[in-house]
Design a protein around this nucleic acid. Structure first.
Length: 576
RNA sequence: UGGGGCGUCGCCAAGUGGUAAGGCACCAGGUUUUGAUCCUGGCAUUCGCAGGUUCGAAUCCUGCCGCCCCAGCCA
């Protein structure tokens, strides 16, 4: 991390070179093109950060484009969710577009291809097309309809558009090369008949364009200069280029009249597709199919379950959007398939929250502790800083009395080596109070420790000269008389194996769900936390970062989610 | 004898013929009223393997090996 924290990667190098050479007038326009058929997840965030980040850093713009060319699997409900997620991540698009805004352009371009003998209407069924396509090692055969006349193709295609034919009976195919080693070039379908109403265009179209055909034209229409996508589209690039070269949108303004008429800015480009590796995280599944199954089968509590890798889940979990941006910046961009350690994400979250979260104390697994040398009714109000390193966070009043709750884990009747906390007869510092000694361990009839009776060494009270007396440990606490009860959800990773997608041993991701990924407990917290704003994040000292649940938290019923624990070298050393 | 990619430290990732950046993790110290944070130091004689070219190679050439993607009228 030198002075220059701006990341460098092969895509930025290409963009830099293009600007230096004056290619496309040095302009940089990117786009994030989600299909509105599901919720955005951490993997999408990589693409969002990349596309918006490059536009921002090279004085360009980035569009949000909904790739809605398949009405049978898309839904308007996802559009708003995607918009919200992108905004939450911290990005603002120059323009919002839909591929469906360009349906008329796609149609005219198809007519042009047909007129030039570069596309034909094929009557083969899906099964027949598959049979004619050949295999990975054998070339395909020409469709018997490949040599139809231009006039016949034009007539047929116009009738397809008019809705004269049934679903699946015909397709419009690009005429390229059935013997190509690249299967995408074996006369790929560019239009199919699908009499289904579309979320934006209603029943205006009985035919819909295929991705390869629509995506490149959409990019050109929007003046996109660098079209960034993932590795699996690498062998689609020849088709991307083929379509663009045959159509040559910039030279044929008449093809885009509908876009101009609709009042959309139109400055066509000849974009360049560049592929990068998608981002994977260990201990998580990222495929839409599996995420959907987790939700539908009730394995999690919805798309925004705090354990889900969706952006809405990350948000509810309390991950700051800036941490997700930092995470993808640290991960980098390359063409190597890779899996990033989940810990990297957690550390980005910790880094950001350490600086931004005010401190409070809370006890999640309470044990009563009585200070026997204070009067029963002893009560005082102390003044604590809200942040140990940043006084702009201000200070707060903290109530203290002769009875407090401490963490059960901070007491061990039979101490183990290296344990710095409270033990019978031992001393420990009560954070912000002073040093206490444990004189008596009260147990229930079943032998459970129910109360600790201690004495506070008044000489060591915070602020007094004796306060600097050294003692091995410091523990947090909450005043038992003024604490509020709250529901605290302790989240942990959803899967307990690094690669839940690996089913080579016969087990599936479902067999690797972490049974302890969500533990709900009753906790005692400093009273003012009841007033915490929804989504506000706090550090509960020595425990971790917690966020007031976006939906369930209220003053009357406080609910906090654990975002992530603090780094805990003791737990690690103790083998927890 | 199908096509397209990729192989640099545990995980990411720079490097584009001149003698292996950086981050995360990890280890060792220091500070600390959070076993947190913070600070300091350590951490690839070596770049999938084998040859070759060169004064000099992770970078060029040849041959192997390994991994990923592609046969939707999905995106």
């Amino acid at each position: 991390m030198s002075e220059n924290s701006t990341p460098t990667n092969f895509i930025r190098q290409i963009v830099n070179a293009d600007r230096a050479s004056g290619k496309r007038d040095g302009k940089v326009h990117t786009r994030f093109p989600p299909e509105p058929n599901g919720y955005l997840h951490l993997g999408h965030a990589k693409s969002i950060c990349l596309n918006f980040g490059i536009a921002r850093d090279f004085a360009g713009t980035c569009n949000l484009r909904f790739d809605d060319t398949n009405p049978s699997r898309e839904d308007i409900e996802f559009v708003e969710a995607i918009r919200e997620d992108v905004h939450w991540l911290g990005f603002e698009w120059a323009e919002q577009r839909h591929a469906s805004d360009y349906f008329e352009v796609f149609y005219r371009c198809a007519l042009k291809l047909i007129a030039e003998g570069k596309a034909f209407v094929c009557d083969l069924s899906a099964d027949e097309v598959r049979a004619y396509r050949g295999t990975l090692t054998e070339p395909g055969r020409n469709s018997p309809f490949r040599d139809r006349s231009v006039a016949e193709n034009l007539d047929l295609f116009q009738r397809m558009r008019a809705g004269e034919f049934a679903d699946g009976t015909r397709t419009l195919r690009a005429k390229i090369d059935m013997a190509a080693g690249n299967i995408n070039l074996r006369d790929p379908a560019i239009y199919r008949i699908r009499k289904q109403s579309h979320q934006n265009t209603g029943d205006a179209w009985p035919i819909y364009p295929m991705y390869d055909y629509a995506h490149c034209i959409s990019d050109a229409i929007e003046g996109i200069t660098h079209s960034l996508c993932t590795l699996e589209f690498e062998d689609h690039r020849p088709l991307y280029d083929w379509c663009l070269d045959q159509i040559d949108l910039p030279a044929h303004p008449e093809l885009a009249e509908s876009v101009v008429a609709a009042g959309l800015r139109y400055a066509p480009s000849r974009p360049q597709q560049i592929e990068f590796a998608r981002g994977n995280l260990d201990f998580t599944v990222m495929s839409k199919r599996k995420l959907l199954a987790l939700v539908q089968d009730g394995l999690v509590d919805g798309w925004d379950d705090p354990r889900m890798p969706t952006l809405t889940g990350s948000r509810r979990r309390g991950f700051p959007p800036g941490a997700i941006r930092t995470f993808w910046e640290r991960a980098g961009v390359s063409k190597q398939n890779s899996v990033i350690e989940y810990g990297v994400l957690e550390n980005c979250v910790r880094d950001e929250l350490d600086a931004s979260a005010p401190r409070r104390m809370g006890v999640v697994n309470p044990l009563r502790l009585v200070l026997t040398n204070l009067a029963d009714d002893h009560a005082e109000t102390l003044d604590f800083p809200n942040h140990p390193k940043d006084e702009t966070f201000g200070r707060r009043s903290v109530r203290f009395s002769s009875q407090v709750w401490i963490e059960r884990d901070d007491f061990l009747e039979e101490p183990v080596k290296g344990f710095h906390r409270l033990v019978p007869g031992g001393e420990v510092r009560l954070r912000g109070i002073g040093i206490i000694r444990c004189n008596e361990v009260v147990k229930s009839e079943t032998g459970e420790v129910v109360e600790l009776r201690c004495t506070l060494d008044e000489q060591t009270r915070s602020g007094s000269p004796g306060a600097d007396r050294k003692v091995k440990g410091t523990i947090h606490w909450v005043d038992a008389r003024s604490a509020i009860g709250a529901e605290v959800r302790l989240y942990d990773r959803l899967f307990n194996v690094a690669d839940p997608d690996d089913d080579s041993d016969g087990k599936t991701y479902r067999d690797h769900l972490n049974p302890d990924s969500r533990r709900v407990v009753r906790a005692w917290l400093e009273a003012d936390l009841a007033e915490a704003a929804a989504e506000s994040t706090w550090q509960f000292e020595r425990l971790g970062y917690f966020v007031a649940d976006r939906h369930d938290h209220s003053t009357a019923q406080p609910v906090f989610n654990r975002v992530v624990t603090l780094r805990d070298t003791w737990a690690r050393a103790a083998g927890k």
